[in-house]
Structures are given as C-alpha cells and as structure tokens.
Design a protein around this nucleic acid. Structure first.
Lengths: 202, 202
DNA sequence: TCCAGATAGAACCGATCGGTTCGATGTGAA
DNA sequence: TTCACATCGAACCGATCGGTTCTATCTGGA
C-alpha cells in the first residue's frame, strides 16, 4: 500500500523488467513520436523509475534502439508467418501479406510503420540503420516470393512489390485510406502475373 | 558595419521578408526535422530576429503550417509541369513523373517528402491535414493520367500509382535506393498497360 | 517633416528536457 | 545470515525549449 522501492511479494527479474519496458515504451513512443514525450512521462506510463530505465538502457537513444530492433524482429516474423500460413502458392502468399497489412492499418492507433517513422524523426544512427535493415528484410521476403513464383527477374519484382508495401503503409496513414492495402494487393498480383514467365499451373 | 536593427540602405518589405523566411525555414526544418532545431537557431540561420518571426507567423506551429503549405503548392505545381512537358501520351507523362522523382531522390540532402515527414513527426493538425491534401493532389494528377490513358477504372489505377509514388520516396530515403524511382516507373507502366482496356494507338 | 511600423539584438521568462544521485526498502543467491 | 543488487520516489542538475518584452534604429508613406 505504502510506496516502497521494491514491493513485498514482487519477483525481482531484470530480464523480464527490461522486456516489459521495451514493450510499453515501444507502444508509447509509437503513439507519441520519439520527441513527443519526455522520459519522465514514459517512466510513469511504464510504472518504473528513471533510474531503472537508465540502468537498463543507458540513454533515451539506447532505449529507442532496443525498441526499434525488437519491433523490427517482431514485424518481420509476423509477415513471414502470414506468408507461410497462406500455403505454397506465391500469389496467395502475396495476397495474404497485403490482407494482413490491411488489418493492421485498420487497428485503432495505427500510425504507420514505427521503424520508418523513427528514421524519419531521427535520420541518424541507429534509427537509420535499423530502418534500412528493416526494409531489407521486407525486400527479402518479397523477393523470395517472387522467385518462387518463377519471376523473370525476382529481385526487380521484389523491389517493385516493396514499393507497394511501403506506399500502402504511407497512404493508409497520411491519406487516411486503410483500403490502400487492397489496392496494393491487386497491384502486386498484377505485377506478379506480368513478371512471371510462365503460369506454373499444371 | 555596426549592428543596427534596420541596416541603412535595406528595403523594408514585410511580404518579401516573410517569403524569405518561409524559404529558408523550409530548407532548415526539412534538413533538421521539426523537432531537431530550436527557434533561436532557425532565426540565426535565416538572419532574422525572433521578434520578426513571431510577428509574421505567431508561433512555431504557424511557421510550420506556412512552410508546409508553400512546399505542397510548389511540389504539386512541379509534378504537374513535369507531366505537361512530357507531351500528350499518358505513358510518357507517367514515365516523366517518376524520372523527375528519381532526379530528386539523387539530390544531396534528400530526406523524403517534407510534408509526409512533417505529418509523421506531428501527426496532428495542421501537418496531418496538409499531408492528406498533399497526397490527394498527387492522387488527382495520377488519376487524371490514368483516365486519359483510357483506364477501365481510373480512380483505382490512380490509387495504385500513388502507392508506387509514395513507396518509391520512402524506399529511396530509408533503404538508400534512389533507383526506386526506376522500379516505380516500370511498375507504373506495367499497371497502366494492364489497366487499360484498349491501346489507343491508331 | 513626421510618425507608424519593421527590424535587430539581447535580456528575460517559466517549463521541460535528458540525465544523475541518493536514501530507503525489498529480493535472491551465496 | 549476509550482502550484492534491483527498484522506487524524489530531489537535483545544466541546458534548451518556445515565447515575450525591451530598446535602439532605420524605412516608407502620409
């Protein structure tokens, strides 16, 4: 009841604490922008003290790096899983990816891609590097799908599909058009068809 | 030589002063980000006093609004002119637009679209509204081209082309790939061809 | 000729920023 | 039992923030 540094009965687990901070701070910084909230408010939101934050992350930039890397890993795994769950047909995988994006765009609090947003706000390391790697991961996924579809030039097709993915996210955010995912899906399927030498139906 | 409020021989012209501030502040805020520089440094960069800035714009947000509106107008006119200069063929106009974007991506100091960046950093009015209108203007241009090309569904094709435009800008910025404009051009021409009922060559 | 207004430059304001330190209090492993 | 460590809450730090106010100086139109 009274305010004590370590509440009785609490379990002291630094790793778990750190993970919890990354999770809460990630949501908070995404919603408010990197410069839209101070450390004090962030700590209050996370229910931790500033000392705890600085012991775990060293600085605000350190926290941001941890948050962005965790988010990039999560999003990358998410899209890969969505594609994998869509079966073996590349066109189905592509459609599933954009459909998943569309559901994301419609979630309350959607504000675009957190990693791209962060790189836009900072445009310096580490945000920049994490964003570059993040887009590269998306490019890998799309290029792989393009290759499995038998594209004449899988890397070129992958790059074009990436434009649709990133464009859809920007348009959903700033034009207020979550339906951009549907447009992107249809465009992607068109590019896939036109970029594929032979239909591989038996 | 000595520091005087109004240098001898200077011509007092508030409108011209205001326009100059918008121009310099636009470049400065684009390069540094809206929260990356303070008013004091901005005024030093523009060679004006804080009082002058606040008399013309009232607040930092007022300055940002003026800067973004001016930028949106300029970019919109620029792309429309590029399309107009490319002749009557819709495919040529589309290619010219993406080629022009590619030249922009390669300019030193390119940092993505200033308006989209601002909306990402603020995500509140007025930046949000200006960004929405800005994307809408691009959409108008692309939809018009799609319609003139005889697209079966000009508005749908316009929306898909917009994804390519915005996606190319994001990818050029954060993946460090100015060649995204070429990818976008090829994808756009493919979508145009596939979305057009009949080739209108005589 | 005169005066309203534009402007520079500097001082100043309260608020907030990121970050540090400290004491009190608890946990968990040796 | 002991002690290193995790944690909270609060006080504190210098710097910077956006914004205001002042004086002095010059322009441009009445």
């Amino acid at each position: 009841m009274c305010r004590v540094p370590v509440p009785k009965g609490s379990s002291l687990n630094p790793d778990r604490t750190r993970a919890a901070i990354v999770r809460v701070a990630g949501d908070f910084l995404y919603a408010r922008g990197l410069d839209g909230a101070g450390i004090a408010e962030l700590c209050a939101e996370a229910g931790i003290s500033k000392e705890t934050l600085y012991r775990h992350f060293g600085s605000k930039e350190g926290l941001i790096r941890a948050v962005l890397e965790a988010r990039s890993d999560r999003v990358t795994r998410w899209l890969a899983q969505v594609a994998a769950d869509a079966g073996d047909e590349p066109a189905d995988q592509l459609a599933a990816v954009f459909d998943a994006l569309g559901r994301w765009y419609r979630e309350p609090g959607f504000r675009g891609c957190a990693i791209v947003n962060a790189a836009t706000q900072r445009h310096t390391t580490p945000a920049n590097e994490i964003a570059t790697r993040h887009l590269g991961r998306h490019l890998d996924l799309l290029t792989t799908i393009a290759a499995r579809a038998g594209a004449a030039d899988p890397t070129a097709l992958g790059r074009r599909l990436l434009l649709l993915l990133e464009g859809a996210t920007v348009v959903a955010d700033h034009l207020g058009a979550p339906g951009s995912a549907d447009d992107a899906r249809e465009a992607a399927l068109t590019l896939l068809k036109c970029g594929t030498q032979t239909a591989h139906s038996p």
